[in-house]
């Protein structure tokens, strides 16, 4: 009988001791928990992308509950999350426009050419340090996929050695834009407008030599635009999205098809 009783008592004793010890410890050494921050962390999407500028959703929630941050900083959650956070905090949400990324380059391998055989680390950042990359156009997309790897939503695809963002999947967190060594990715609002898909700041003749669809700075778009939304600077055009009416005239008139309508 004692044979059974003693081990049972020992194991039960250890269990009870552990249980009591842990419960007293968790009471004595309790750390005050910020209730608001907890609720906010639950409301936030939990992607921990860092687009808000804080170290993950928990960091943003902590800053919000202390009043150190504004409500609408989360592009992933968008307006819905901003509203929820606002209601938890009891403040006004303000406006939040949904955003998406676009790669301002059309340099597929048919449209451009290579100036060297690149055999090295499979990364755009690495290739860019070797004479600006293996493409003839030194401003264009290298196509080794740093942005695609960075994107947590799998919104970027590499097609014909050009990075293409699927704007339906993109949440506008901006991580890809930070990673692109050529700074080709722009985070824009989702309003349908024209976008100049070229970032080549060389003279027109040079651009033409390296890319079939590059912007040559001919200013046809600028002259034709009824809203005056286009300016040409440094031999490359740029569309002011707030003025663009999406009439499509610039797209028709561009001799190199460098301007596209983006939704």
């Amino acid at each position: 009988m004692m044979n059974i009783l003693i081990p049972v008592l020992i194991v039960a004793g250890i269990g009870i001791l552990a249980g009591l010890g842990l419960s007293t410890a968790s009471v004595i050494m309790a750390v005050p928990v910020d209730e608001t921050a907890e609720k906010l962390t639950e409301a936030l999407p939990g992607a921990n992308c860092g687009a808000c500028g804080f170290s993950g959703c928990a960091g943003y929630a902590a800053a919000l509950s202390k009043g150190e941050a504004k409500v609408g900083l989360c592009p992933v959650g968008g307006k819905a999350v901003a509203d929820e956070c606002a209601s938890i905090l009891g403040v006004d949400a303000g406006d939040m426009t949904p955003k998406a990324a676009i790669v301002r380059c059309l340099g597929t391998c048919d449209n451009t050419s290579v100036k060297m055989d690149y055999i090295g680390v499979d990364s755009c950042a690495a290739a860019a340090q070797l004479y600006g990359g293996m493409n003839s156009c030194r401003f264009g997309c290298i196509g080794l996929g740093d942005c695609a790897r960075e994107c947590e939503y799998h919104a970027i695809e590499l097609c014909n050695e050009l990075a293409i963002v699927d704007r339906n999947l993109c949440v506008g967190c901006g991580k890809c834009a930070k990673v692109c060594p050529k700074q080709l990715i722009e985070i824009t609002d989702r309003k349908p407008a024209a976008v100049v898909m070229c970032s080549n700041r060389d003279k027109g003749a040079l651009t033409r030599k390296v890319c079939k669809v590059g912007c040559i700075g001919c200013m046809k778009c600028q002259k034709n635009c009824p809203a005056g939304a286009i300016t040409v600077e440094n031999f490359v055009a740029h569309v002011d999205r707030s003025l663009c009416t999406n009439c499509g005239l610039c797209v028709e008139n561009c001799p190199t098809h460098a301007i596209q309508e983006i939704f």
Partner: peptide, 9 residues
């Protein structure tokens, strides 16, 4: 050239 392709939905 080396390419990585990831499919997007």
């Amino acid at each position: 050239k080396k390419t990585i392709s990831m499919r997007s939905a």
